[in-house]
Simulated assay, not measured.
Amino acid sequence: MRIMLSLAATAAAALMATAAGATTYIATYSVSAYGGSNGLDIETAYDANNPFSVVLNGNGASTSFDLFDIWTNEGSLDSSDLQHKDITVNFHFTSPGNQSGSVTGDTYGLNGQINEGVVTWDGPLVLNFGGTSLNITLSNQTFNANEDDRHQNNELNSGSWNDADVRATLTQTVTAGVPEPASWALMIGGFGMAGGMLRRRRLTAVTA
Rank of each mutant, 00 (worst) to 15 (best):
S6N: 11
S6M: 10
L7T: 03
A8P: 01
T10F: 06
A12N: 13
A19L: 00
A20I: 12
A20K: 08
T24K: 12
A27N: 01
A27K: 02
Y29G: 01
Y29D: 01
Y29M: 02
S30I: 05
S32P: 00
A33T: 07
G35L: 05
S37L: 08
G39R: 03
L40V: 05
D41V: 05
E43S: 14
T44R: 07
Y46E: 12
A48Q: 09
N49S: 15
N49D: 15
N50L: 08
F52E: 02
F52I: 07
S53C: 05
N57L: 01
G58L: 04
T63L: 07
F65A: 04
F68T: 00
W71C: 04
W71T: 04
G75R: 09
G75Y: 06
S76N: 13
D78G: 11
S80P: 00
D81Q: 05
L82S: 10
T88Q: 12
V89Y: 08
F91L: 13
F91I: 09
S102T: 14
V103W: 01
T104F: 01
T107W: 02
Q113L: 12
T120S: 12
T120W: 02
P124H: 04
L125T: 05
T142F: 05
T142I: 11
A145R: 03
D149Q: 12
H151F: 12
N153I: 02
W161L: 10
W161Y: 11
D165Q: 15
V166T: 02
V166M: 01
R167L: 06
A168Q: 07
V174W: 10
V174T: 15
T175C: 04
G177T: 11
G177C: 01
V178R: 13
L186W: 14
M187R: 09
G189A: 15
G189N: 13
G190A: 13
G195Q: 07
M197E: 07
A205N: 15
T207S: 13
T207C: 08
